[in-house]
Amino acid sequence: MANVRDSDISLWLHNKLGSSESWTSGSISSQLTPDVLRNIKECFIDLQTQVKLKLLLSFFHIPRRNLDEWKHELEEILEVAIADTEQWVAMLAEMMKSYPSSGCLNFELSDADNEDNRRIFEDLVHEVTGELKNVKDLNLLPLECHYLNKNALQSVVGTQKQPVKHFTIKRKSKSANLRAELLQKAADAVKTNTKK
C-alpha cells in the first residue's frame, strides 16, 4: 500500500513540477502537509532532478508558522537531498538545510557533505577573491547608499575616493547664475508678501 502511495505522490509531483519552466511559483507549498512530506521523503530519491530542485525551492514559500510545525519533516527531506548523487540537488539542499529551523540560508559550504560540491564552491570563492585584489576604481555601491546621510554612508562605505579632475572651472555655469537669480526672486517675493 505504501508503494502505491509513493507512486501516487511521485506522479503528482511530476505533474505539478515536471514542466520545462525553470521557475516555480511555489503553488505546491499550499498543498503540503506533514503526511505528504513524509511520503515525499520516501520517494524523493527516484524523482527527476528538475522535480527535486523545484520541490526544495517550494520550501521558501511555506508560511513561517507551517515552517515551524513541519520543521522535522522538511529537514528529513533535506537530509536525503544532501546525499543526492545529482550535484545541484545536493548543493541546494546544503544551502537550505538551516532554513526550516532558522529561516536563514546556510553559508558554511566548506563543510558540505558532497566533496565535489565543496571543492567547486571553495575554488569559486578563492578565485573571485583573487580577482578582487586587482580591482581598480570601479564604483558600484549598494543601492541603499543613495539614501544615506553622510555619516551613515561613511560607516557603510568608508571614505570615498576623490573624483578624477578633468579640468579647472574658470567661470560659473549658466545653471549657477540661474540659481542666484531664482533665490533673489524668491527673497523679493517673500519681502513683497510681508509688506502686504
Binding site: W23, L53, K54, L56, L57, M91, M95, M96, L109
Partner: peptide, 11 residues
C-alpha cells in the same frame, strides 16, 4: 532558474 539564483546569491 531559481536554483541558480539561490546558488549565486549564497556565493
Amino acid at each position: 532558474a531559481e536554483h541558480t539564483l539561490v546558488y549565486s546569491q549564497v556565493l
